[in-house]
Design a protein around this nucleic acid. Structure first.
Length: 270
DNA sequence: CGCCAGGACGCCC
DNA sequence: GGGCGTCATGGC
């Protein structure tokens, strides 16, 4: 990754990075593709910091209206520019199926998202499809002025007052997560530093957080790259390509491998 | 219309 | 421990 500042933009050249593949592969739900003069432009947030970013050609990116400090303090980490994905994909490609998945969408990067937003987002994700998950989160943020609400914000709601989300049975789960986090009964900060088994158990204290959601929070919201969420798509991958188990040598990065496989399997038939 | 979705939970055996 | 029905909503 290399960059320079030009007027109000930070211009980045980065390999192993594709905006469509990274921002629309089911790890984050709040980035929106918008029309622009560039081939591909997305707008979104990390916490309260907004960003509009374009991909101009293969490996050139424009972080619009961004100063050098904001880029270094926020976006460098958010887009995981400190990780060598080329090296990771080289390791993954020792496995035949993963090699195909990496070739299919080699521009996926594991975003370092906010743990609280991830927790709520993946509670909403259960037994749900991606377009509708996005809709519910959109209504949630819309209700709070376009910003993802804090646990304190949401703990003053009730499952009933969350009706505007049309999130169904998940409303009381959102409320329970908000209350427990706001009151300190569950500390996401402490969980992120725990050994992974303890972290899983701690997350599951929240109603509506089971094995899959806990794994997603660990992977996407705490960058625990050994976390391995198994949803229906990954279940199909495991049954079809890994009847004897997933390669052990990938273990500490199996969450990242999972992202390539998820995207590969989901788009295979399209 | 029916089937499905980045599942969790309670109940049953 | 594993199997099964239920949960609310809407995308396709």
């Amino acid at each position: 990754m290399d960059y320079y500042v030009k007027s109000n933009d930070v211009i980045v050249s980065a390999d192993d990075f594709d905006l469509d593949e990274t921002l629309d592969c089911g790890q984050a739900f709040r980035w929106k593709k918008i029309p622009s003069d560039y081939p591909c432009t997305y707008t979104g947030h990390f916490l309260n910091t907004p960003l509009t970013v374009s991909q101009t050609d293969g490996n050139k990116f424009i972080f619009h209206d961004t100063d050098e400090k904001t880029f270094n303090d926020i976006w460098y980490d958010y887009f995981d520019f400190g990780t060598d994905y080329s090296e990771l994909k080289k390791q993954f490609s020792e496995d035949k199926t993963l090699k195909k998945a990496c070739e299919f969408a080699g521009g996926i990067r594991l975003l370092r998202q906010d743990s609280w937003e991830c927790l709520v987002s993946f509670i909403i994700s259960q037994n749900n499809n991606i377009p509708r998950i996005k809709g519910i989160i959109d209504r949630l943020c819309g209700h709070y002025g376009g910003i993802f609400p804090t646990a304190e914000n949401l703990s003053s709601e009730t499952p009933e007052s969350l009706g505007y989300l049309r999130s169904g049975f998940r409303a009381r789960y959102i409320y329970d997560a908000s209350r427990k986090v706001a009151e300190g009964e569950v500390s996401l900060e402490k969980i992120s530093a725990m050994p992974i088994c303890e972290a899983r158990a701690e997350l599951k204290k929240i109603c509506g957080v089971g094995a899959k959601v806990a794994e997603c929070v660990l992977l996407f919201g705490m960058h625990r790259t050994e976390a391995f969420p198994v949803d229906v798509w990954i279940k199909r991958v495991l049954e079809k390509y890994y009847p004897n188990g997933f390669p052990e040598y990938i273990e500490e990065n199996q969450g990242i491998a999972q992202q390539y496989l998820f995207h590969y399997m989901r788009n295979l038939s399209e």
